[in-house]
Design a protein around this nucleic acid. Structure first.
Length: 468
RNA sequence: GGCGACGUGGCCAAGUGGAAAGGCAAGGGUCUGCAAAACCCUCAUCAUGGGUUCAAAUCCCAUCGUCGCCUCCA
């Protein structure tokens, strides 16, 4: 069974096919850069990082475009508040976000276009819409005419009638229909503005993405992604704009990640329940966040809280622990035992692909990895040599790498390894105490080191320590 | 009010017609000077009520509940 992807457009899983064989054109909506990014943004970026990594693992060449919306009311307001230049402010947040993504081990996109650098394409696209009567000009603003679009609402399952009923849309006299949305907005004095045939102004959010898509990926793409809060109106409008011009199906697949939930509510700036990526990474390694994302379905809400964090920390320890070296003095596995380990490693790869092919079932993939962990741990305690463990360990690293996990042995970054020699000294001293059966003092050293974050494990052959 | 998603053990969570994956936590055991780690064992009939089927967590209907969107939002 080949890769199947759930398509929001059809609400079903469909076999994945691409416009051009072996190549994927993929666009994901990035953030509007007016504040520090939070872990909800990180979830979305990480989901599509995993999608991208798996597509590449499956042999596709992926052209991955993630945009930045770098001109918008919120950015302008924030800049005015701070008395700063809006462009400089946006640039600062873009730089920070890029660093955040890097810290989360999220691969850089092939391209990060931004609205302010695409004005010609945006204006050109609006002009085409006006020319084709899909849009109209009112007082220097340009609006998209939803009533001229027969299948408007096909992504979100809404109808114009349904949206009118009980809606909270403010009536704007200049609009022909309440659902008509702005493609171009004339600027107030002092606001950033670009010349256009209609007014000095700036583009609406939705048209930016349509334009960047067409410019960098073409009129038709394979995957369009984003948070499920973007389904309506953003993605609905992107479809309307793009298809009105091209007359062709815009994106073959629409993928939407679920929201990150904090105490039963979506994490969002407007709700104020935010944990920034920076705050998170101060407390936890990037792998912990990745495991949170991996442990559920990307489409479902991710429940964030103390419990799941602790669980992810434990999971990380277990996954990292499998890389421990063979027992000192290991006698080696029998041929039959070794064959079992090798079979487990091969099965893991087959099973991994099978579950991931099912709409990126990462929770299933983790279960596969845990089975391999168990086989490896068993082999080690059965006395496998490092040489015997290595092939299965390599397979393990290959698969965890596809998921973007680094599984680095945690180290105390603050000391930068400078404490190691002193810890070695203490551990060796404790060994001497143990041979002298001075258990009380040996145990005190072990406990005190544990309180400092250093865990000691004893075995017949000696002790090893690691940062906890 | 409209549209959409969802409700699986203490917690997280896969599975979308044919004997309930996995992890965390918990309990018992092996190992250990004692621990830790690791290994072995134990731990659910899938919100509720109907229906379809030889067979349903999986399909259909209803009810209850949760969340998202309908205004900017990953």
């Amino acid at each position: 069974m080949a890769l199947q992807i759930y398509n929001t457009l059809t609400r079903t899983k469909e076999p994945f096919t691409t416009i051009e064989p072996g190549k994927v054109r993929m666009y994901v909506c990035g953030p509007t850069v007016y504040a520090q990014a939070h872990i909800g943004h990180a979830m979305s970026a990480m989901v599509f990082d995993i999608v991208r990594r798996y597509l590449e693992y499956s042999g596709y060449e992926v052209r991955y475009v993630m945009n930045y919306t770098d001109v918008d009311d919120k950015i302008i307001n924030k800049a005015n508040e701070l008395g700063e230049d809006p462009f400089a402010l946006a640039q600062q947040y873009i730089d920070e976000y890029n660093q955040d993504l890097k810290n989360l081990n999220i691969l850089p996109a092939t391209l990060n276009p931004r609205a302010t650098e695409e004005m010609d394409f945006i204006i050109n696209m609006i002009a085409k819409l006006v020319k084709g009567d899909h849009a109209y000009v009112a007082d220097g603003d340009v609006y998209y005419r939803v009533e001229a679009d027969e299948d408007y609402g096909k992504l979100s399952g809404r109808t114009l009638e349904g949206m009118n009923a009980g809606s909270r849309i403010q009536v704007d006299e200049r609009k022909e229909h309440p659902m008509d949305f702005a493609l171009w907005k004339s600027a107030k004095p002092g606001e950033p503005a670009w010349e256009s045939p209609w007014s000095k102004g700036r583009p609406g959010w939705h048209i930016e993405c349509s334009a960047m898509n067409c410019h960098h990926l073409g009129e038709q793409i394979d995957i369009h992604g984003g948070g499920n809060d973007l389904i309506f109106p953003h993605h609905e409008n992107e479809i309307a704009q793009t298809e009105s011009i091209t007359g062709k199906a815009f994106s073959r697949f629409w993928m939407h990640n679920g929201m990150l939930m904090l105490k039963g509510e979506k994490m969002a700036k407007s709700l104020g329940n935010i944990i920034s990526i920076r705050e998170f990474l101060k407390q936890h390694p990037a792998d912990v966040f990745r495991l949170l994302v991996l442990s559920g379905s990307y489409r479902a809400p991710l429940i964030y809280g103390e419990d799941v964090l602790n669980q992810a920390e434990q999971v990380l320890k277990r996954l990292t622990g499998v890389k421990k070296p063979a027992l000192t003095g290991a006698k080696g596995l029998s041929e039959a035992q070794y064959q079992l380990l090798m079979e487990a490693a091969e099965k893991a790869k087959i099973d991994f692909v099978e579950v991931m092919d099912n709409d990126f079932n990462t929770a299933g993939a983790l279960a596969v990895l845990f089975e391999l962990v168990k086989s490896l741990n068993q082999a080690r305690s059965d006395g496998a040599t490092q040489e015997q463990l290595q092939p299965a360990l390599n397979r393990f690293s290959e698969l965890t790498g596809v998921l973007g996990l680094t599984l680095e042995e945690s180290s105390s970054s603050a000391e930068g390894g400078q404490a190691d020699a002193f810890i070695d000294l203490l551990v060796n001293l404790r060994q001497t105490l143990r041979t002298e059966k001075n258990w009380a003092l040996a145990d005190k050293i072990r406990n005190d080191l544990l309180n400092l974050g250093v865990a000691i494990e004893d075995s017949k052959e000696g002790s090893r320590w690691s940062w906890n």
